[in-house]
């Protein structure tokens, strides 16, 4: 295989499937997922808990349990800053380690579990710098101070000496972001980075990420289950359900006129900032995400779908159709659904 073509994208994931070996047999957690992210672009990965968002991102980072406990199929082509293109699923572990935390960085939902509780934050950031850069400790600490200041932590010099438990949740997440930025990543994967935070702090973090992206041109894959957050930050959205992409496209069209009944449901479930006379029941999606071990036949969303057609939806597995303007949808009846939705 020669050097693969990935046009301008930083990351081009092709037909990614992830299966875990369990005592009851293989479990397909992610199935045939393809997407791209360009420099300076933010792709939001949305879906309920258990839909495969984290597994997708961990597979790209090769952080899933090693083979044979996990089986990875497909390609994840990554363009380094020097222009070389590599398949992340095929490079040796050593090369992968050199990329992680360097050209590809990741931040997680719970900053406390990802920071070392007994090491000063300055040392942790400095270590992240020294792992990938030929610099001394002094220089690395200076860079750590600069990074802390950059992510909006006041009095950065003094904070270098703080332990994670001295910091609030929002500050810990800023420290995580500072660590992620330590080596100017070309790609940042953020797995629910604001889910555990207050709305006020969430707004600060979203703003910070957008600023940093404007400045460095990094690509961001932003995982969340909150469509409000998607609207704030994303350029494109990819909705996942039961391990598959069910809708993807530009954020405007997808959120204004979602084609997939699941996306519609997710969107309606976000309570709006309004007051009503008396309690008006919130719109929810009935039921829960099916377990990957017990997927319903046909369309996986069929048991929860208000537009499901017996005989069709529970019998035929829908393909990912191209709708319009690059919007893709996995629904057998999307045109009919769109017509029904358009009616007042």
């Amino acid at each position: 295989m020669g050097a693969p073509e990935i046009a301008t994208a930083v990351l081009d994931v092709r037909n990614l499937s992830v299966a875990f070996a369990t005592h009851t047999g293989p479990v397909a957690a992610v199935h045939d997922v393809s997407f791209t992210v360009a420099p300076g672009e933010t792709l939001a990965l949305v879906g309920e808990s258990g839909s495969g968002k984290s597994v997708t991102s961990l597979a790209v980072m090769r952080l899933t349990p090693p083979a044979p406990r996990t089986r990875l199929d497909g390609q994840a082509l990554f363009r380094s800053r020097d222009g070389t293109v590599r398949d992340l699923l095929a490079v040796p572990e050593r090369a992968m380690r050199a990329l992680r935390g360097n050209e590809i960085a990741m931040i997680f939902q719970e900053p406390m579990t990802s920071l070392n509780p007994v090491q000063r934050v300055g040392d942790q950031i400095a270590e992240a710098v020294m792992t990938h850069r030929p610099v001394g400790r002094r220089e690395a600490l200076d860079r750590a101070e600069h990074l802390l200041a950059r992510v909006g932590i006041s009095d950065a010099r003094r904070r270098l000496a703080a332990f994670p438990h001295h910091l609030s949740g929002g500050m810990r997440q800023r420290v995580m972001i500072a660590m992620a930025l330590a080596c100017d990543p070309a790609l940042l994967i953020a797995d629910e980075p604001t889910t555990a935070l207050d709305v006020t702090v969430q707004a600060q973090i979203l703003e910070l990420l957008q600023d940093l992206q404007r400045e460095t041109g990094m690509a961001i894959v932003f995982i969340t289950h909150n469509l409000g957050v998607v609207a704030e930050i994303a350029d494109r959205v990819m909705v996942m359900y039961a391990g598959r992409i069910v809708e993807q496209g530009e954020v405007g069209p997808v959120m204004r006129a979602p084609l997939m009944p699941y996306t519609q449901g997710l969107l309606r479930a976000v309570p709006t900032l309004t007051v009503s006379d008396g309690f008006v029941p919130l719109t929810s999606i009935p039921g829960t995400v099916p377990s990957p071990t017990a997927l319903p036949p046909g369309c996986a969303f069929e048991p929860r779908c208000p537009y499901a057609l017996p005989g069709l939806c529970d019998a035929t597995t829908p393909p990912l159709d191209d709708a319009f303007d690059g919007q893709q949808v996995r629904c057998l009846r999307w045109d009919a659904v769109a017509a029904l939705e358009a009616r007042p």
């Binding site: 207050d198 006020t200 707004a203």
Partner: peptide, 10 residues
């Protein structure tokens, strides 16, 4: 600070 699920209202 509440995020609004409408990209045109950023």
């Amino acid at each position: 600070a509440v995020p609004v699920a409408d990209p045109s209202r950023r």
